[in-house]
Design a binder for these strands. Structure first.
Lengths: 216, 216
DNA sequence: GTCTATACATGGATAGAC
DNA sequence: GTCTATCCATGTATAGAC
């Protein structure tokens, strides 16, 4: 779309950062070539020169931003060894995201992607970075437990990621409600964690129940 | 904002329906006085005459649409008697929502509300309709079980509602992923449901665990 | 009271100057 | 390679016709 000179890369970088800032601060509805260029401090026409269209810039920004955000938490996630620890890290991520807003950004892009065809694959890819990370942790954490047999880490990771996006969006309109929601999820996690630590007799009873009802 | 003659009410109604259709089919980014008026089949200026501004129309549409959607599922939710039944109804709602899209609409509004001040309260109110309904079911279902002591129905209802919105948005970019996510949540529900049905000895063990770890 | 016509702002995109 | 000038579509809002 454009050459790879140092100057060109710098402008592209400015535009990517500008797109991220605009999306998080103004939302998808107010994000345009003009607003992004203003945030980036470059001329509006450069959006089209370097990325072809606004949608393609946003798609690139999504990949770029998600990679940056996931990278920041990757080491933290790598050392998670239990389900309840994962929940604690989830809360930590939430706290940091409240200022950074990279997850809410995915929410904005998900909203935009419902109609802007070009955004769909990019947004899915951005989410997949989070999903892959979460799934890796879940596989590690769950495989060792007696629950491994009944859980689908791939699906669970997707549920966690999507739910997280929903809660981050929700936080924007009801901060107290979002806090309550996170607290309740932690309780739920504690419940499953408690199950992990049951004695063999109780576990067999649970497994028996699950085999009967948990078909799918 | 305008009187309540039959004619006026009819136009308002058309605009509300038009706003809902535009939001679900085009997303918040493409929703404007023009697109809504086109969907409603009325002149664009009537948005401002009847509602004052686009944001106020969207806020009204949110209340109107959420009430309509919740009303449709209220009787179905009223007869839910167990956790696993609730999960089944959740999947049913999802199936119907895939065509109607009223939950994804809340996602669009949540995305828009991050910047359009006026949308925040209305969106929160719309979500609260769902939350109240879910909470009522949770209170009923959980109170009877030994888990009642450790759960926060209010927070859990908010988590469920926000997660559902996130998953509906996610479905737009990865239908298979969303299916997997819902499946995993059903497994999780089955797990908790299985816990409900344990014998007294195992339940005591779980409760003991929870008292130690489930502090918050 | 209800709606049409119209003014004015913003956004997407490109041609051509530097 | 970058930016200015500019075109045209779309968006918000209001003045005034019916």
């Amino acid at each position: 779309m454009s050459p790879e000179t140092a100057k060109s890369l710098e402008t592209k970088h400015k535009l990517l950062e500008g797109a991220l800032r605009t999306l998080t601060e103004q939302g998808i509805a107010k994000t345009s070539a003009r607003t992004v260029a203003a945030a980036a401090g470059v001329n509006q026409a450069l959006v089209f020169y370097h990325f072809g269209s606004v949608d393609e810039l946003l798609a690139a920004a999504c990949r770029y931003g998600a990679e940056k955000a996931v990278a920041r938490f990757r080491p933290r996630l790598a050392e998670v060894g239990s389900l309840s620890e994962l929940l604690t890290v989830g809360r930590e991520i939430h706290e940091q995201e409240r200022s950074g807003g990279h997850v809410a950004l995915l929410g904005q892009l998900l909203a935009g992607a419902q109609t802007h065809e070009a955004l769909g694959p990019a947004t899915a890819a951005g989410l997949d970075l989070w999903i892959a990370e979460i799934e890796r942790v879940l596989v590690r954490v769950l495989a060792a437990t007696p629950l491994g047999e009944f859980t689908d880490p791939a699906g669970l990771a997707r549920a966690v990621a999507a739910s997280f996006v929903g809660i981050e969006l929700y936080e924007g309109v009801d901060a107290a409600g979002a806090q309550a929601a996170l607290g309740a999820l932690e309780q739920l996690g504690a419940l499953v964690a408690a199950l992990e630590e049951l004695g063999p007799v109780a576990q067999r009873a649970v497994r028996h129940r699950l085999r009967r009802t948990g078909r799918r």
